[in-house]
Design a binder for these strands. Sequence first.
RNA 1: GCCCGGGUGGUGUAGCGGCCUAUCAUUGAGCCCUGUCGAGGCUCGGACUCGGGUUCAAAUCCCGACCUGGGCGCCA
Length: 435
Amino acid sequence: MNMLIKNRKYATEITADDDGERVSIAGWVHEKRDLGGVFFLIVRDLKGVAQVTLHKGEGEQQELLGRMKKVPRESVVAIEGEVKSEKKAPNGYEILPKRMEVLSEASQVLPLDTTGKVGAELDTRLDARFMDLRTERTKQIFIIRSRVLKAMRDFFDERGFIEINTSKIVSAATEGGTALFPISYFEREAFLNQSPQLYKQMLMASGFDRVYEIAPIFRAEEHDTTKHLNEATSVDIEVAFVSDDEVMKILEELIAFVYSKVVDYPGLAKLNLNLEVPKMPFRRITYDEAIELLSGAGEQIEWGEDLGTSAEHTLGGIIGELYFITDWPCAIKPFYAQPVAGDKDICDAFDLMHPRLELASGSQRVHSYELLKKNIESKGLSADNFEFYLDAFRFGMPPHAGWGLGVERLLMSMLEIENIREVVLFPRDRRRLAP
RNA sequence: GCCCGGGUGGUGUAGCGGCCUAUCAUUGAGCCCUGUCGAGGCUCGGACUCGGGUUCAAAUCCCGACCUGGGCGCCA
């Protein structure tokens, strides 16, 4: 590897204080400006842009000037030169080049504008995602996504959670509800997992009493909306010897912690957001109260019906901040949700709602083998298919609770992004399978 | 799955039966001016998704296909 690249610095690592230093930088040709006595080459890297300034009329620089004029925008270059403190330069410094290597020349014309002068539709951007990621806004979204995931891992680690990885290839048995992608598994049929639910619960019988997983989930639903993906990332936790109240607390603390780590991030400024850490505890309303609020707003929901999109929006408009809906009818919750003491029709289940969409759902789990088996059958599923799961409940299963949270939904709601595809590098939706 | 929109140079758009030899911005090629920072001025290049139909005349109206945006359903 040549020395130019080996010793390169990021644009933001150089300051006016480095006046006189010899440095090298490498990156993409962001812009070129050919003026009378001077030629500017703006080089962009991950961290920022650096202005390379070539003063014309210096004889030995003619060859370099010619190559700088010719190099197409978005080509990858490495430049070595001397730092000069300069008030007229954007970052207070500029680089007087001595040497330039064109590492990769970009074809013209470009599929997208990387300077932000002309917009592009999401579909066009996704087709050329590699280049879309060179734009400031898109880049920041994914740096923030990375911070969010790190914050989550730090959070769980501090609280004694064990990170787990469960299989994404599963046999026919599922928790029902959503459609699955079938795949060919040697001579048998298998599926891509819709959720780690059954596996994380089975671990509760293992003594691993606080686990979390951050992993892809797959849904074969033919939905085509701004908040659904066919491949999404789910944060799942499961905790033994606790109640649903405890995991709700963990959830709101996690959300607040993640927000605090994003609010801290200087790059957030590039997204023009006014982000605040949500106040704890989040508001909690019961399903019954939700229905009542909706009725007051002129939206009638029969008891036992799920809340549709318009109901979610109406409630969100009334409440205006993150909130929980608790005490759901068991009929619209999965078989593993535990009924409340003294009422078999209502479950200790909850959803975490953002005013625009659902972020997470969880519950106290059924840990009685008999009740679980009965629930599976009453949902019209075959207990035989769940034998591998049910077995874990026969030989010592502690009470437990947990939840699943959509990473993309958290991100889009936090960053006020309208389309969920914006927060996935290479989204998979009803139509898109490439790139 | 249902219901509405939309497909015009590389990108983003205007035009919505004849004034279209199709607007504007940006990009590309080039010239002028110029320590620029969305630099400025000028010249040139570059497009009506495809297939049928209606009409004297279609980018414009109709039908179909394909692509695409949104709302709802399902779902998280």
